[in-house]
Amino acid sequence: MNVMQAQMDDLGPDLAACARGDRNGLKRIFDGEAGRLIAIAERIVRRRDLAEEVVQEAFLRIWTSAHQYTPERGSARGWITAIVRNRALNLLRDGKREDLVADDRLEALLDTDQFEKIMASWHRLDQDSRLRDCLGALDETKRRGILMAYVGGYSHGEIAGRLRVPLGTTKSWIRRGLTALRECMA
């Protein structure tokens, strides 16, 4: 973890407070992070009410699991974010996305908007961000695939369909893209 990340990781003490049963710790995390966490969930589940549901469940889990957090598991912010991401992805897998993209036209509309949001997440990275540079060094298709998966919660199959690439090819592109990204950021 570099110095900047370490400075950003100010949530460890709040998680420790949660583990002690101090609700103020959870409230501080909520006050500082809820808006960001809702936005992260909404990029995946694509509906505000579902995103709030995800964040509500995630906060209960943060509360009950806080004692399991150790710095060995990464930054506290990363750990909290991962809980929200996992809840959102599980909601998709439970099939709720089908409810909200019931017909093709609606899906197309959502996708255009969604696609812009996903690419914006890359452009919003700090100019001097390593991740920004390394994503920029990838072929466009690999970059899109990785961003669609991470930011939008798309599965291999959904990415293949939207990029109009065979499934096997999509999987190997993404795998190679991820390897290149790891090497670039090492």
Binding site: R36, I38, G74, G78, R85, L125, D126, L147
Partner: peptide, 25 residues
């Protein structure tokens, strides 16, 4: 997680519904 986290920390925060904390608590 740390490698990809900046994509999440850079997001524009959403407006938080006033009742959400109450429901969590």
């Amino acid at each position: 997680r740390e490698r990809f986290l900046p994509l999440d920390t850079a997001v524009e925060p959403a407006a938080v519904d006033e009742g959400l904390w109450g429901r969590i608590e």
